[in-house]
Amino acid sequence: MTTTGSPVSAPPTHQGGAAPRHRNAPPSREARRRERRSRWYQRDVKWSPYAFVAPFFVFFGAFSLFPLLYTGWASLHKVSLTAPTDMEWVGLRNFTRLFEDDFFWNSLGNTFTLGVISTVPQLMMALGLAHLLNYKLRGATFFRVAMLAPYATSVAAATLVFVMIFGRDYGMINWALGTVGIDPVDWHNDKWTAQFAISTIVIWRWTGYNTLIYLAAMQAVPKDLYESAALDGASRWQQFVHVTIPSLRPTILFTIVVSTIGATQLFGEPLLFNPGGGPNGGPDRQYQTLGLYLYEQGWTNLHLGRASAIAWVMFLLLVLIALVNWAISYWMKKSELGRKAARRRS
């Protein structure tokens, strides 16, 4: 699905290297210069990719590798936040105990349902909004910045506003329901209402974020693709489906990967939804996610070892999802090829 780059292996100055050489007629200064340039050029082509990716890996190695290794090491130990360097070896116990940990499975389930009901609508809406923003608009910059306003709003303000909206006794939604004669809903205490409410917060917060990502990609779609599609009589909708979407495929893939990771680590929104402010996700843990459970174990219960194990399980879970994804696309490609071959044969 991707066009992979093909660096040019034959630079124009290459012929310099093939300049005739005679032992007693030293190469002209020009030729030597060209040769030097050529060698330099080849080295440039060979090594510059490494130079380009190096800063990321250098900074990552300097500041993220140690925390990663520490977390991995801590997951095999009993260790408390009161003394983070004082570890007691427990082997895989922090992992095996998760099998019997009801709270873990509960949060895993919540993470999954919340992930689905918040990620799918969010990405669809973002795609639509990006398409609208990609029109010629008056005040385009204003709309773009406004899209990002939810992401920029401080958590303290968002918390207060959503408490006002979803409050049981004095919330705005229940007030509105009351005016049409519907009984108030206790948004926080029922599992599904709570998850619905949280997913609206997630959608509110992140749709604009993804919208801008799509918008950037749309800016790069070649105009003549639209022109030729229009010449073929394609409607705006058909252009969107047949020109915009295919051109956005790498970016859509990107948002799906990032949103999946984000959904697995979902943390801030359920935390701010809890009126008490705690990480337990309600009295019945009805909206505790893996991210919150990890936070509760690490920062409230101070069990760094257990929290680290949860973190690594979340990581492995994502790797698993990636592998399954890869396998599915592999098989689909293969069967498609098989079908094509079969068609050709017949």
Partner: peptide, 26 residues
């Protein structure tokens, strides 16, 4: 290239909440 890219994407998958403790030590 592909290995390094996978590695890069993989680093996003580790939840950030815990790295705070070892990072502070550093």
């Amino acid at each position: 290239r592909n290995l390094l890219l996978m590695l890069t994407i993989g680093t996003m998958m580790v939840p950030p909440q815990l790295s705070v403790v070892p990072l502070f030590m550093a």
